[in-house]
Design a protein around this nucleic acid. Structure first.
Lengths: 224, 224
DNA sequence: ACAATGCTTCGGCTACGGTCGAACTATGAA
DNA sequence: TTCATAGTTCGACCGTAGCCGAAGCATTGT
């Protein structure tokens, strides 16, 4: 009974613990070397090398050679989205006793999802933007005229973003909140700008932490 | 480096060929017995039984006992959506040479995705409904007043649907078309109505085939 | 009560795939 | 040229998990 593309191979690829670790380690959108991935996955270098080649062959990762290093990143945000979706299942499945780690709470509050803001803060941002009518919340999220003005004023060169091939607005399902947050070029630029302003900082892995001033400013300028 | 819920276990669950077959066999939304699943997956009954218990334990399937039969179905449309998303990867990954089977073309044209219409026809339906302003194409797809009237006239008791707990409108990503199609209670009711009118018929597995009259009527009454 | 059917559990077999150490290649530095 | 570091490939080891046949429950039918 052949029925659509065979999902088994791709799922099995993600299903190995070491490879899953590699993939989640890359979910902050940065590119890591094979050695770094080996450490992240808790395996030796040769093992990681094998996994990486399988993942690139399947198109989940892309490699970029630079000198004697090989930098690997997720091939696109769609991969990140798939992983987030799997997380949302893994969570409620409760197959694992969910021994909520120390940084788990931090992850829920604010984290990087590929290249944009996720977690409570990400969902709050998305909600505020739609509530104010800056974006229309749709299958294809679109930017309104008001929104364009606001983003420009915020310091994001919207016009420049639109010339690129990448979709400006996208949404992405948040595994911890089970609601959408802003992705796409705009989501990426928004996160960059907030990091630039030192509203929040990377705190190891995917965790993002607000600075005290940043939290205030975020509430006042964006959410309010 | 603990980082979010562990996706490996859930992915590994889907990653086994026999289990993947079981899951795809259930993607038409119907409930099948363990024996039927065993045949679909190409394994013996004891083997299938073991797989099924793992899948139910993980919350991907739900069981319903009826006499000495045990009917199994996907636990929800979100599972179907996850599977469709995996298919979209499996497809472009090209890990498998994609030897496009005979019914592959048929699958692309019209098929059942859990309980609603998918494939070219499903995407066309969704497009037509949005183009006419019957639904707004959003993160949360909503039904407009015009749309409500149209669906009622088409023979779908919208008010009744809204009393149920299930969301009326949802979208679902189509693996073959890479665009959204209509899901949710409305999508389900729409498919039921079209089957009722004999516009299309189940043709084995998930494949749907238009009747000649059905194709005309669909084009005239819905797409036009 | 007995047989038949649908499913689960058990025990044992097998094989696939992940893992590592060691050897090899390639790039860059001294 | 020589050494050091990053990565790949190879060979061997091992564990896990899928698979089946046989036996055991449970439910229905006669």
């Amino acid at each position: 009974m052949k029925d659509g593309p065979s999902i088994a191979s791709i799922a099995a690829l993600i299903g190995d613990p070491a490879r899953a670790n590699i993939l989640t380690a890359l979910m902050d959108g940065r590119a890591l070397t094979v050695s770094e991935l080996a450490e992240a996955a808790g395996v030796t270098l040769p093992t990681a090398s094998g996994h990486v080649s399988k993942l690139t062959e399947a198109g989940l990762l892309v490699a970029e050679k630079q000198g004697r290093h090989r930098y690997l990143r997720l091939s696109g945000s769609d991969v990140a989205q798939l992983l987030e979706q799997l997380m949302s299942f893994a969570q409620r499945a409760g197959a694992t006793p969910i021994r909520t780690g120390p940084n788990d709470a931090a992850l829920r509050q604010a984290r990087i999802c590929y290249d944009h803001l996720a977690g409570e803060a990400g969902v709050a941002l998305f909600g505020a933007l739609t509530a104010k009518g800056f974006i229309t919340d749709g299958e294809i999220v679109t930017l309104t005229a008001d929104g364009r003005a606001w983003f420009e004023h915020f310091g994001i060169p919207v016009a420049t973003l639109e010339t690129a091939r990448r979709p400006v607005c996208l949404h992405c399902l948040d595994w911890s909140e089970r609601r959408h947050h802003l992705a796409g070029a705009l989501g990426s630029a928004m996160l960059d700008e907030m990091l630039q302003r030192d509203w929040l900082r990377r705190a190891g892995g995917r965790v993002l932490r607000f600075t005290t001033e940043g939290r205030k400013a975020f509430a006042a300028e964006v959410l309010a």
